[in-house]
């Protein structure tokens, strides 16, 4: 069966041979289905039910083991809940500061680590990637030790340059700074690798042509590397944005959402609502609100990066 369906179509493609703009070869719909089939089938089998189930649950309220249909009441509740507003504000702040910071750092690092003249290249790459492979439990202990107010490594460093100790995890402002720093530490190497892989897709001819035209390093970086990397940068931006809006692990471990909810995020909040207060209906409503917000932000990012559909 597969062989008949995968038999090449003899129809010539509308934009055969083209590179830019030829994002898809028109008329080849059947093979397209077959390539996405395994993934779509797996999603349908394993995720359709959980997704619909969580949506369904968001119309229920559960107390004392009894579920009752409450219509849109859980969604109305979202708008009167100060913790929902606060958690959204917190991730908004993190998103605006952390994602550009991290994507730019990762882009710069990847570019430097891709230079052919660089010595110890593998070693440098591996060291920058190390944070991405840390287990969560080691990560949590290491950061709590580094950020401890009394005798923590960071405060000892600050003391060496004559600064007073900072109450990293107990102050509302500093706990946000600590959180942003620790997410950036953990995820920059990850994005660096993805961009590094993307850099390999840039044809060497483009660099050569630019050099012949007398372009400097900065010009090559901005005029050739960045435009060529657009899909990869879009990928990095969108996944980092989703990561920031769904932030959970880091604040769960480091601050538990405190102090005074300064590092509470929507996912941490819905975890508390669902798994500590057992209000799975409301937790699902928070989740779907978050999905809506992420979807809007992602569409905006697609539009900004001007991806042709």
């Amino acid at each position: 069966m597969t062989s008949t369906l995968l038999r090449p179509s003899r129809r010539p493609s509308a934009n055969a041979g083209g590179r830019a703009g030829a994002r898809s070869t028109a008329g080849r719909s059947r093979p397209g289905y077959w390539f996405v089939l395994p993934a779509v089938a797996l999603f349908a089998i394993f995720f359709l039910y959980p997704l619909l189930s969580s949506l369904w649950q968001s119309f229920f309220s559960t107390t004392g083991g009894e579920s009752t249909w409450v219509g849109g009441a859980q969604y109305l509740r979202l708008f009167h809940d100060p913790l929902v507003a606060k958690s959204l504000f917190n991730v908004g702040l993190i998103l605006v500061i952390q994602v550009p910071l991290m994507v730019c750092t990762a882009l710069g690092l990847a570019y430097l680590l891709n230079q052919s003249w660089l010595r110890f290249r593998t070693g440098f790459r591996a060291m920058h990637f190390l944070p991405a492979v840390t287990t969560l439990v080691a990560y949590s202990l290491v950061f709590r030790v580094m950020l401890a107010t009394d005798g923590g490594a960071v405060n000892q460093l600050l003391a060496m340059v004559g600064m007073s100790p900072v109450d990293w995890l107990n102050s509302e402002a500093w706990s946000r700074v600590a959180l942003i720093a620790s997410i950036t530490w953990r995820w920059t190497g990850y994005n660096m690798v993805i961009i590094l892989a993307g850099l390999q897709g840039i044809p060497a001819e483009l660099y050569e042509a630019a050099r012949i035209d007398g372009a400097g390093r900065w010009a090559i970086f901005t005029k050739i590397v960045i435009p060529q990397l657009r899909p990869v940068i879009l990928f990095s931006s969108i996944t980092s944005t989703i990561g920031a809006l769904q932030l959970f692990d880091e604040n769960f471990i480091l601050t538990g959402g405190g102090p005074n909810n300064a590092t509470l995020t929507p996912v941490l909040y819905l975890y508390k609502v669902g798994f500590q207060q057992f209000d799975f209906g409301y937790a699902s409503a928070i989740a779907w609100l978050l999905v809506a917000i992420i979807a809007v932000v992602s569409v905006v990012q697609f539009a900004i990066m001007k991806e042709k559909k």
Binding site: Y49, P266, L270, Y271, G274, W288
Partner: peptide, 19 residues
């Protein structure tokens, strides 16, 4: 595909567990 990235895993755990 993007939707399954957007939904927090935490709310899918119980139904997936039931499955």
């Amino acid at each position: 595909v993007l939707l399954t990235m957007m939904i927090p895993m935490q709310v899918l755990l119980v139904p997936l567990f039931q499955m």
